[in-house]
Amino acid sequence: MTAFFESFGLPFEWAWFVSMVIGCLVIALPLMLAVAMIIYADRKIWAAMALRRGPNVVGPFGLLQSFADGAKVFLQETIIPSAANKGLFLLAPIITFTIALVVWAVIPFAPGVVLADINVGLLYILAASSIGVYGVIIAGWASNSKYPFYSALRAAAQMVSYEVSIGFVLISVVLWAGSFNMSAIVEAQRAHVFEFVNGFGFNPLLFPMAVVFLISAMAETARAPFDLTEAESELVAGYQTEYSSMAFALYWLGEYANVILMCGLNAILFWGGWLPPVDWAPLYMIPGIVWFFAKLMFFFFVFSWVKATVPRYRYDQLMRLGWKIFLPLSLFWVFLVSGYLMLTRYS
């Protein structure tokens, strides 16, 4: 696209700049639409599992429910508690929302379809997701209220703990792929098992890591059964308690954008991203982006399924799972994977 703008006589730098801005919009605007539809899908799946109908009034099959909710929230008054720290109170949802969007820059949707094909792509995602926790912490502190503060403390501890095991899981993937670049990681999965099946997840040595990553992803996005940050029976609505109107909506959008991102990461890191499940020529007739979104939607269904069926963890169980099970397991697995690679690939 840079070349296209250069043909208008723009110097390279500005052509690059304009094409980057357009690239951001091309990702961010459909993402917002996708978030609206995925909230609808989440509610429908959840309702179906509870033998309810779910949203079915606004628009055909209730498809416009999310937009109606959005319009309602947009027209509400923004209430700022008088004891709140005003600047930080408003900054917090903006941080959450921005970080949730920023991460998408390095996600490859199809071969070559990626905004920033940087060679530290995976580290960039880790970095951005570690900043995401500030949106919650700052909200909890700036609200100047008990329950949001408890929620912020829980969120900070939870995200820091699960990031550790996610880090080790990613290391074992990176060891196998030999790169931090997201596109290179997907390409490394081509014909990975028996020179026929695409995807690290089908490799018995990496499958346990895929499971650990899926569960850690749920904890990292604070989805049920790890949604202790907004456990309504204990903390009202958690860190969002004092928020209303658009500030609240930004949290909602950011949260679901993060959930979609984690589903996409599952697809990219372990199940072959844009590649079809097996390395068979006719399957490549279907465009890569379709495979990617199909895998993404499957993992979103798993997320909703878990949300609908598994009861919420207790806080000590959450910490036990993170520190006493996932951390030693993933650490041991890094040794195992690196030892295997050392024996087979580098000896």
């Binding site: 530290v120 880790l126 970095a127 570690s130 900043i131 912490i137 900070a156």
Partner: peptide, 22 residues
């Protein structure tokens, strides 16, 4: 030095400063 930059964010912003703030 993009690697150092990412480590700076992950380690200092993501872990050390969170504990500070805590």
């Amino acid at each position: 030095a993009e690697f150092i930059a990412m480590l700076l964010v992950i380690v200092y912003v993501g872990a050390v400063a969170v504990l500070f703030l805590f």
